[in-house]
Amino acid sequence: MTAIACQAISKSYGHYEVLHDISLTIQEGECFSLFGPNGAGKTTLLKILATLQRPSEGRYEILGLDGLKEKETIRANMMFLAHGAYLYDDLNAKENLAFALALRGQTPTDRDMKLALDRVGIGAFAEMKIRNYSAGMKKRLALAKAMLAKPKVLLLDEPFTALDTAGTEIMREYIRERLSENGAVLMSTHDHDKARPITSRAGMLNQGMLKEISLEALKSDELF
């Protein structure tokens, strides 16, 4: 079944066209990696698919639901791990998890939260305020949020930045788990070495235009 399908999406900011005529289809169980230089429009495309922004032109469907009309249902089944970790500085890790999941309509038990925190390796800091967290720890906590939410569609914006080797492995492990449970993953990254092992399809976004590239081309460095 098709998880993400967008047709002819364009987006302009003021006078500048950030995305031009993007069409993309991602099946369930697929991980699509979006490469491209800075300012190519990767984050904008993810934000549009995450129902945070409305495209200037074009339409898209997620899990067969219209992205402009059935946003609430899409949101309940989708998770966007963005550049900002969506965490409150004055709450501790557990409170942040409980709050974020409560807004999604989920009530994880204390044990579930503890397990997720342990799995991402910050179980020891569960009672610490986020204010004192490092960028990598914040990223891990956001990942723990996604683990508890178990979304069908996962959108990741630069998932490997700020993560160390162990953190990268946890992230990849989680992505594999989602794929094995028939979830779909769309991630933007410029780190093709870290992304390659889990990528099933890849695309190059440049100056607002999307071009699909083969996995072989991904291995050779000439593209970058």
Binding site: G14, Y16, E17, H20, G208
Partner: peptide, 9 residues
């Protein structure tokens, strides 16, 4: 401006 933007990209 839209045309210009498109042309520019």
């Amino acid at each position: 401006h839209a045309k210009k933007g498109r042309l520019m990209s």
